[in-house]
Design a protein around this nucleic acid. Sequence first.
DNA 1: CTTATTCCCTGATTGC
DNA 2: TGCAATCAGGGAATAA
Length: 272
Amino acid sequence: MPELPEVETIRRDLLPLLRGRTIAEAWVSPNAPRLIQLLPPDEFCRQIAGRRVEDIERRGKYLLFRLDGGLLWGVHLRMTGRLLHDANSCPETPYLRASFRLDDGARLCFVDLRKFGTMWLVDDEALVTGRLGPEPLSEDFTPAYLHSVLKRRSAPVKGVLLDQGAIAGIGNIYADEALFRAGINPKRAANSIAKQRAARLHGGIREALELALGDRGSSFRDYLDPSGREGGHHLKVRVFRRTAEPCYVCGTEIRRVKVAGRSTHYCPKCQR
DNA sequence: CTTATTCCCTGATTGC
DNA sequence: TGCAATCAGGGAATAA
């Protein structure tokens, strides 16, 4: 499940490989009817062919390929999507949903077991990322902003962290990790979190994301970088998928519960 | 506006 | 052991 650190790793890896390259030809599997948004797949392939990649950006969990002529190619990997570069990391797989041949002979393959991934080809970026909240690693994500967004929500705090309109890029892994670092129970009502604790959560979010980014993301099940390699951070998480294992701080068994419809892992002693 | 629930999809896991 | 039911999860859609 690629979240901000994984998507950012993909962006950094792909940038030197794709910048300045032209997409010579595109193919979309007829077995992936929901992949291309807003356009028929054949129209998407026709319009993207011949375009040069000028830059690659990221907003939340969205990859944004800036193409010539002001076109934007947006990609969301959802649960199991992978972008693999070159034949070496594009093994024969029944889960190949789209592929892009480049003018240097390389191939970019979109592999996605569960078919939740989505792509856009638009003039207007707002059609892709219009509803996203601030980037958690940018300057406009401040402790004061976090406190203000928590204040007006009565849902469990974890639900707010997962809300892409509140903060962009946090998913199930890093929501749990950030809440552990801040010592906050995931079920706590967001609007019951005082300014001081919100500031601690702000720090926890940044730490969790930056540490994972330093390890090139987490590979719990499906995530691979564009070369087909795993990230390293799943070996270092404090709570995520550590059910019944001892907390590294106090030794208490990590618990798993359902919060906001998602599996949630926390230390009942460190996170009251 | 909010929050909760369902759906998409398929391999892995659980339960009888 | 074996097969069916349930689970996992991002985010859109729908319900309340």
